[in-house]
Design a protein around this nucleic acid. Structure first.
Lengths: 341, 341
DNA sequence: TTAACGCCTGCAAGCCTTTGCAAAATGGCG
DNA sequence: CGCCATTTTGCAAAGGCTTGCAGGCGTTAA
């Protein structure tokens, strides 16, 4: 290895700075290590030279020694629902605020979540956030074995041992049911997502519970094949074409609710909210636009993100505490797709 | 440093595997280095032990030697427009496909782009993609000095020396104008984003050009304070309230176009497309929903992403080629907000 | 059977930091 | 001015991996 190695031009390193400033390498290191002892003369000298040479400590070499990478892995699956853009926004922001960096992994195209996780682990990240429908217990095992704090976001898988931060989806479903009942609707249906997804399941079962408590039965239930607009449209059309046409639907997310609204109005000539009510879930920005004005159940996303990062950083600094689970309450955002009294 | 250091339990390393398998460390390394020479016996033995011990090479240590991190930095600013979710989807997917990883940086809240870039550089990333409104020349300088390939995505700043992959926004603007002219509209207006953003500027000037060529003048132009729905709504209301009411508007993105449509229909009682035409830009999924059916100009996002990554990886393997700029054509997606003949 | 030839493999140096330890410098105080 | 208590500072050893070099071994040809 004689000349400039494989990659780009060799960076300026701490030895260059040390030589130039006439100090030891350790001194340079200490100037760039918060909390290390260095006289102000020293600090000034090193900083000046670093500035001039455009020196910057090499994070890789550093992490080799410190066993900290300041990298947080984010595993995401849903790139179709705009809520996830704002979730990503909040997460990356919160992560950067704390001086950490986000390593983003996309597991949407059925790419093996397991395999991705392994890849991530090569980087010995400090912590990991998973926001993906399928959360395998093997992943959480991997993390525990390697001592990597993990929080499962907006999902509540029963069979994994990890931190969980989620909205209270069951309670959210109940909220929807009670609103509908209170407003005099009687024949309700639920439009869920794919059958395996715990959020959809929880929202549905909360809905059913509250219905049952009021002595009502859910008329029907359909599951969309995916969480998108088209899939929702198709599912709702199926629902409205069948017998037992409901007076109200509760949808597992806003996108499907918007599809429901469109299908009801444009294809079935239903008046909303007079003939037919629709409730969504999430409160995405589009739900508030003029043509929709969707009544919906809101998850406290900001709080969820904040708590996730809190839990994660706590766990990073104190690795041996046992996993916590935080369940945050939803609220109803009332607009115009449920009649007002 | 006697006992378990700062971070989690110490990982299993190549020496563990080597000892256990009765081979040298180099052997282990070579088994995990594609293209290195190792007999199949060797390989089998090492792989078996690695499996059992759950060994995985440490990417940090590796990159220290190879000068390659396999990390691609993505700098993004716009977390409000859903197009960026699909862009992120495509990028992360393409990056993973090539065995690389995405380090995502959020510079939306006016966080200094410069400062973020510096942070990113500490990780000595292999390449960087910037999709942010403001692209400072200093950033591209930083990259060039450090030998980090850089591509500017969906933006065409004149004053930076870097790879550029973007849609032909000027031509896109012309497309919009010509469609409108051909369909008999005469009094046009443009609704742009903040005045400093090159995409909005280019789209507007292409629009103006084509109008001028047809002997028409743009009636008015308004700029929204941001690219969102509410800002668009406000801008369009201003436009329609003023004198010289136009018969058609071209909006710098779909979100504002949707806002325009809503404002025109709900607040001004205009019939679209009979009395009033609207054209957007981007072709986001919501533009296709029943209440909108928006006619719009589409950027070839997938191709743009693919080319960006191609350019980037080319540049990574051959660092000394000069920057390229690729400008891809837009197309019109015709739906129902411009009359059909 | 022996020599020449290749493929494997191990050795050890190097990548860029951090950090325990001990020596040097500083400062306060009598 | 000398002594002791603190800082500062430098040395050198990690940390986990890659890789040039040279010796080892198995193979083929004579």
């Amino acid at each position: 290895m004689v000349t400039g190695k494989a990659g780009g031009r060799s960076r300026v390193t701490a030895v260059d700075v040390a030589r130039e400033a006439g100090v030891s390498i350790s001194a340079v290191s200490r100037v760039f290590t918060p909390g290390a002892s260095a006289s102000s003369k020293m600090r000034a000298k090193v900083l000046a030279v670093s500035e001039r040479l455009d020196y910057m400590p090499n994070a890789m070499a550093r992490s080799l020694m410190t066993n900290r990478t300041h990298l947080i892995g984010i595993i995401m699956a849903n790139f179709k629902n705009p809520v996830y853009l704002s979730i990503l926004d909040s997460f990356t922001h919160a992560i950067q605020q704390r001086g950490l960096r986000s390593l983003l992994f996309n597991v949407s195209r059925g790419d093996d979540l397991e395999a991705s996780a392994r890849q991530i682990m090569e980087y010995s990240i400090d912590g990991m956030i998973v926001s993906a429908a399928s959360m395998s217990p093997l992943l959480s095992d991997q993390c525990r074995r390697r001592g990597i704090p993990l929080v499962v976001f907006a999902r509540h898988p029963r069979n994994v041992k990890a931190n969980v931060v989620t909205a209270d989806n069951v309670a959210g479903g109940r909220l929807a049911a009670r609103l509908l009942i209170e407003r005099g609707y009687r024949r309700m249906a639920y439009v869920g997502g794919p059958e395996t997804v715990s959020t959809s399941l929880d929202r549905g079962s909360g809905f059913d519970q509250a219905l049952a408590e009021a002595g009502l039965d859910r008329v029907r239930r359909v599951n969309a094949t995916d969480y998108g607009y088209d899939e929702g449209y198709e599912a709702v059309s199926r629902l409205l074409n069948g017998g037992d046409r409901p007076e109200a639907v509760f949808c597992a997310n806003d996108i499907m609710a918007m599809a429901a609204l469109d299908a009801a109005r444009y294809d079935f000539g239903l008046r909303v909210p007079e003939d037919f009510a629709v409730i969504g879930f999430d409160d995405i920005p589009f739900a508030a636009t003029k043509p929709y004005r969707l009544t919906t159940i809101r998850q406290p996303m900001d709080a969820m993100v904040r708590q996730s990062i809190d839990v994660l950083t706590d766990q990073i600094s104190a690795p041996d505490v046992s996993p916590v689970t935080r369940i945050l309450p939803c609220s109803v955002i009332e607009r115009d797709t449920v009649r007002s009294s």
